[in-house]
Amino acid sequence: MQRKIAVLVEVDLDGRYVRVSVTGALTRTNQQALHPVLRRARTTLPAARVSVDLTCARELEPATVDLLRGAVEHDEDLRGAVEILVPEVEPAEPAAAAVDARRRMRAKVLHRRSAGLAGPALGTAS
């Protein structure tokens, strides 16, 4: 079984805040895929504060978080502009936590998308 991550990038309308939500299994190898995403966010929106949310990751090794923090500190464009959020406790059941994380992420996205949609017209005759 291949251990993968899924990444959702959210940008506020003013371009001052970027949130990178990560789900799946974050490993020493695939954490490197986040580096270009973070650099792209900073290049596109230089004044933006970038937040990397790892709280919904199914698997998360402490060494992986240290590698990601080290990469952020080493890159002068990212240093001081990227915040890494980690879960307080490790989930008890990885599979159940992953499903819950995906559901929460999809619900957030759908809620935000639907907030901008107009409702059906009331009082119209067919």
Rank of each mutant, 00 (worst) to 15 (best):
A33G: 07
C56Q: 13
A118S: 15
A92S: 11
L117P: 05
D75A: 04
L110G: 01
K4Y: 11
G119W: 09
A97R: 05
D53V: 01
A118H: 13
L67G: 05
T23F: 01
L85N: 08
R42S: 15
P62L: 06
A41R: 00
R58H: 06
D12N: 13
D53H: 01
R49K: 11
R19N: 06
P87K: 05
R102F: 09
D14K: 15
A97G: 10
P120D: 08
S114L: 11
T27V: 03
A41I: 01
R49T: 10
E61W: 01
V11K: 05
A125N: 10
D77L: 03
A48G: 06
L117F: 13
P91Y: 00
T29M: 12
L60N: 04
A71T: 01
V9D: 13
A81T: 10
Q31C: 13
A96V: 11
P120W: 03
D77T: 00
T64Y: 03
D100Y: 11
P46Y: 00
G70L: 02
G24K: 01
H74W: 12
A48M: 03
V109P: 04
A48K: 01
L68F: 03
V22D: 08
P62R: 00
A115Y: 05
V37G: 03
V11Y: 04
S51K: 07
A41F: 06
V37P: 06
P94D: 05
P46H: 02
D14W: 12
A107F: 14
L117W: 14
P94M: 00
Y17H: 14
V86Q: 13
P94C: 04
L38T: 01
E76Y: 02
V22K: 07
L13D: 13
H111E: 13
L78N: 00
L34E: 07
T29Y: 15
L68M: 01
M105R: 12
A81D: 05
R19L: 14
T23M: 06
V37W: 06
P91D: 05
V50C: 09
E59M: 08
T29R: 15
R69G: 11
M105W: 08
G70Y: 02
G24W: 02
A81C: 09
R49C: 08
A115W: 12
A101P: 08
R102N: 11
T44C: 08
T29N: 12
A125I: 11
T124Q: 10
R3F: 06
A121T: 14
V72I: 14
L8C: 07
D53Q: 03
V89R: 12
R28E: 15
R112A: 10
S114N: 11
L54M: 08
L38Y: 04
E83D: 15
T29C: 09
A63N: 08
P87L: 02
L117E: 14
R49N: 07
L54K: 01
A47V: 09
V18C: 09
I5Q: 05
L122P: 12
A47G: 14
D66S: 09
G15Q: 06
G119V: 09
R40V: 04
G24L: 03
A71Q: 07
Y17S: 14
P91W: 02
E83Y: 09
P94V: 01
V82D: 02
T23N: 03
Q2E: 15
T27E: 13
V9A: 12
G116E: 07
R112N: 12
S51P: 04
P94Y: 02
R28Y: 15
S21C: 08
R102P: 04
P46N: 07
V82K: 03
G116Q: 04
P36Y: 03
N30C: 13
I5A: 03
